[in-house]
């Protein structure tokens, strides 16, 4: 299953369509980092609205994505975590520490727009 990566100005938006396998997640990780380099993006938004389960592997992959992208000098925002998924995640001790989060795509974009306005 391919994860579409959309380019919107200085940002990349990756939307998780449905339940992803580990292989899909690994592929996404590589793909995102390559595209950040290619487009010299300033930030990546990962939209997980469609994910009904976020287990330790998925959560770890998201953290790794954020980490690698930070090493490229860009920022990552995870958006669209469902309330029920968030509850299950904290029970598992998965808190995505150090990674920015926002309610949905709109909020994620607002957060990044503001951030890059104030630092410029």
């Amino acid at each position: 299953m391919e994860v579409p990566i959309l380019k919107q100005g200085a940002f990349l938006i990756a939307t998780f369509q449905a339940a992803l396998s580990d292989a899909d997640l690994n592929q996404l990780r590589m793909g995102l980092v390559q595209q950040v380099v290619k487009f010299r993006s300033r930030a990546v938004i990962v939209d997980v609205t469609a994910m009904d389960v976020m287990d330790s592997f998925a959560s770890r992959t998201l953290r790794e994505i954020a980490h690698m992208i930070r090493l490229r000098g860009a920022e990552t925002v995870i958006v669209g975590i469902q309330p029920e998924v968030a509850f299950a995640m904290v029970q598992l001790g998965l808190t995505l520490e150090g990674v920015a989060t926002a309610l949905d795509l709109e909020e994620g974009l607002a957060y990044l727009n503001e951030k890059f306005k104030t630092t410029n």
């Binding site: 770890r60 904290v90 598992l92 001790g93 998965l94 520490e97």
Partner: peptide, 14 residues
């Protein structure tokens, strides 16, 4: 390894 990281080993406590 309550609320540490994603790498909880076997993840059984969770």
């Amino acid at each position: 390894g309550f609320s540490t990281s994603g790498s909880l080993g076997l993840g059984l406590p969770g």
